[in-house]
């Protein structure tokens, strides 16, 4: 009969209209500025730099200015300048650090590739999404002081991921220390070969922290290179 389809459709709209007053599945709107919906842990917006301590963020940046993220960034929004000197990192090892680390968030497309390619877990995605500024160019260009956020903040926004990263870093440091100890012990046990300094001591750390990364030229000597 002509009109049945229309009446059926009207019944659906009526169901939704009434349902929107009592059924949360039919009334899904959130009144945004007053009510903020919870963010999933994986949510990403713009990158930030992880520093070990909140008190001295510039002194404890994990970043060693290897420039891999700068090279891999699809819209080329990262700009890094390496330091001339070296500073000790969290493990006490001397490292290069970035004197300039800028991200142009007006260009950044939040793709997370910088996070994935970073071999040092030093750049992570932030969850701040209210980032409007009045200035067109300068205000959206974040420098390293604005980008640095503490590891505690990282734990706060992404607890599971941060715990996993911390566990991995701790395990690596421990392995490096043990290897260094073992190498030192081996060195002490073999006094007749002092001429060839053993590269094994710094191998695990060095292979991970090679500034050029994969495809770079500088590769640490292989273990078999020892005479």
């Amino acid at each position: 009969m002509l009109g049945t389809g229309l009446i059926k459709g009207l019944a659906v709209t009526a169901k939704n209209l009434v349902g929107s007053y009592h059924d949360p599945a039919r009334y899904t709107t959130v009144e945004y500025p007053e009510v903020k919906p919870p963010l999933p842990e994986a949510y990403r917006n713009f990158p930030f730099l992880v520093s070990e301590s909140a008190d001295d963020p510039m002194g404890t940046l994990r970043c060693v200015a290897c420039q891999i993220c700068e090279k891999e960034c699809p819209p080329q929004c990262i700009y890094i300048e390496k330091s001339k000197d070296k500073k000790p990192d969290a493990a006490g090892k001397l490292q290069i650090y970035p004197t300039v680390f800028a991200i142009d968030t007006s260009v950044c497309m939040s793709c997370q590739i910088c996070v994935e390619v970073c071999p040092f877990d030093s750049i992570k995605m932030d969850q701040v999404y209210e980032v409007a500024t009045p200035g067109r160019y300068g205000d959206l260009l974040l420098n390293r002081e604005q980008l640095a956020k503490s590891n505690a903040y990282y734990h706060q926004i992404r607890p599971t991921e941060a715990a996993e990263v911390d566990g991995r870093l701790a395990a690596e440091r421990k392995a490096a220390e043990e290897k260094a100890k073992a190498a030192a012990a081996a060195k002490a046990a073999l006094p007749p070969k002092p001429a060839a300094p053993s590269p094994a001591a710094k191998l695990p750390d060095e292979s991970r922290r090679s500034p050029q990364g994969e495809g770079g030229a500088a590769k640490p000597p292989a273990e078999g290179a020892q005479p």
Binding site: Q76, Y79, V100, A102, D104, S106, V107, Y137, L141
Partner: peptide
Amino acid sequence: PDDYEWEPTPH
């Protein structure tokens, strides 16, 4: 072509 607005960036 060099006929559009170049936005100053640090690059």
